[in-house]
Simulated assay, not measured.
Amino acid sequence: MKMSADLDQTPRSLLVSERSTFQDQKNRVSSQVEQLHLNYKVSMLLPDCGSAPHHLDSVLKSFSSFYLIKDLPIHQLLDQDFLESAVYQGSVYGVSYRTRIDEDNCVALTPKGHLCLSLDKDSFEVLGVEGKPSRFNHRTNSRFIVSVDLTDSCMAPGGRGYERLLTGLRSRLQLKTDFLLSHHPGGGASLQALLSRFDWSEHRPEISCRTLTQLSCPAVLTSDLLSCDPHSFLEWLGAVDAHVSSENSASSFLSSFTCPEPMTTVSRALNVSVCGLLLPQDIHRLIQHIRSSLEQPHLESWASLTVHGFVDSPVSWGDNEHGVLRGGDNFYSLLMVHDQTYYLHQATGAHDTCPP
Score class of each variant (00 low, 15 high):
N39C: 12
S304D: 08
F331G: 00
A242N: 12
L68N: 09
D81N: 14
D152T: 00
S142V: 02
S123Q: 08
A219F: 09
T211S: 15
L169Q: 10
R160Y: 11
H37C: 09
L180W: 05
S147W: 05
L286T: 03
F331R: 02
S333M: 05
D282A: 02
L165H: 09
S96Y: 05
Y40K: 08
Q214E: 15
A269G: 09
L38E: 06
L278M: 10
K26N: 15
S273P: 00
A250P: 07
S171V: 08
H138Q: 13
P73I: 05
V33W: 03
S333N: 12
S227Y: 08
D120A: 00
L60G: 05
F179C: 01
L299F: 11
F179M: 04
F257D: 06
S4L: 13
S142D: 14
T264H: 10
R98V: 06
L173H: 01
H345R: 05
S134K: 04
S313M: 02
E300K: 15
R204K: 15
L15M: 14
H243I: 01
T264I: 11
E235Q: 13
T341G: 09
L119F: 04
S223H: 15
F66E: 08
E235M: 09
N27Q: 14
L109C: 07
G323W: 03
H203N: 10
D178N: 08
L221G: 04
F310Y: 14
H289I: 03
A303I: 01
V311M: 04
L270P: 03
I287T: 10
G186E: 12
M1L: 11
C49W: 08
S31H: 10
Q25D: 14
G90E: 11
V59H: 07
S333R: 05
D329G: 00
L279C: 01
S293V: 08
C259H: 04
V315T: 11
Y93C: 02
L56G: 08
D229M: 08
T10L: 04
S13I: 00
Q35M: 11
L38Y: 05
V42R: 05
Q76I: 03
V42F: 11
H289V: 01
V337I: 15
E295H: 13
Y40E: 12
D120P: 09
S273H: 04
F144Y: 15
S246M: 08
H298L: 12
H54A: 15
P230T: 00
I287C: 09
P205L: 02
V311I: 06
